[in-house]
Design a binder for these strands. Structure first.
Lengths: 197, 197
DNA sequence: CGTCTATTTGAATGTACTCAAAAGCGGTGG
DNA sequence: CCACCGCTTTTGAGTACATTCAAATAGACG
């Protein structure tokens, strides 16, 4: 099997030979998930990291006040999973759920270690991506503190317009850390204030 | 030079031989910083990651509203620096400043790559720590959303009591994402409500 | 002792929330 | 095709938590 999307993503970090790519792909297990199906839920260990070959998912938790909190939405070309749980073997606090029928290419811990030893591109890829994700999460933490609800909405429109094509509005509100009612009001205000622009 | 704190921290991940530890230490440059001195500031590239052998620092930025936001306080045994800037070579958004006279053991990018190739303990250490930091930051992002100002304060008391021994209260308030006045009020309320406990 | 900074306190304000209900939308089955 | 049901989005009124602005008090350092 080819998985051209995956190949393109890996090439983004360093060139890959056919042989190395095939070796890597041999370690992956493709899996399909129906809409609303969970890849894993909280209270279980995340045993596989996964590449989103097709579809759209949300990574979320239910907090101590029984509120859902969404960490991210993922679409094609994203890697998903709970690295903390994956490496430590502890149960995850988070859940990963398909928002649309999705196809994932998954790798378990043994395959991960094999790939790390035998596929330089994979070693480089996840090393770089982990550091980038860490940075990006720190940036997001700060943005969450700094921005008002309206600013968060406008920023998301600018940075991730695809989300508005695939995700219902009340989920976007939760992702932005606000109530669906608040997002609705913000949209109304913006529509009134700036129909021109 | 011995650097027993550093050795103990590395041993936390995997055993180290004297030879490997010496090889690693030879790649480090010790540096001292006075109180309030910056290790690096925003607008410059973070060229060194550093181990806190002694002292206490804060990692912060000035946001788009000209407000200081503190990402973390670090004390002995922490590794500090902006990994995003360090690896990408882009200017950092963040600044790192000594809160007390501090001694750092620093490593630049060349030494880092050398160490990664030649010191297995270092390769394993930063790989594991990066993933852990990423997880921890995600957890913190969620906590920031979920908890009230008072809950954040109580949680910090429980999880990082050392901070209250070394850091002035208004800096703690900023770290918790609130105004110094708010933290003062919260402390007052808690003192009134629960002198018994 | 005096100055500078940190902390506390008060009063008024604002942003986003809660509770509640109405309107809109999409899919299903009669 | 239409009627109904469930879910999403909108709207309204009142509330809460933390903020702003302002000033007083306390504490640290030279």
């Amino acid at each position: 099997m080819h998985w051209p999307r995956l190949r393109r993503v890996l090439e983004g970090v360093s060139p890959v030979t056919d042989g190395e790519f095939d070796r890597f792909c041999a370690l992956l297990v493709p899996m399909r998930f129906k809409k609303k199906q969970h890849v894993f839920t909280d209270q279980e260990v995340c045993r596989r990291l996964a590449f989103v070959n097709e579809g759209c998912l949300r990574y979320y938790l239910v907090d101590n006040k029984a509120e859902e909190r969404i960490i991210y939405f993922a679409q094609e070309d994203w890697w998903v999973g709970d690295m903390g749980s994956f490496f430590s073997g502890n149960r995850s606090l988070y859940s990963l759920q398909a928002m649309e029928p999705s196809e994932l290419l998954t790798i378990d811990k043994d395959a991960f270690e094999t790939a790390r030893a035998q596929c330089p591109v994979w070693e480089a890829f996840y090393r770089i991506k982990t550091a980038q994700s860490y940075s990006a999460t720190t940036d997001r933490y700060i943005q969450f503190q700094s921005l008002s609800a309206e600013e968060k909405y406008l920023q998301l429109m600018k940075k991730s317009p695809w989300i508005f094509q695939r995700i219902p509005q009340h989920q976007i509100a939760i992702y932005l850390g606000m109530k669906p009612q608040s997002l609705s009001r913000i949209r109304k205000q913006l529509a009134e204030r700036g129909p021109i622009s």
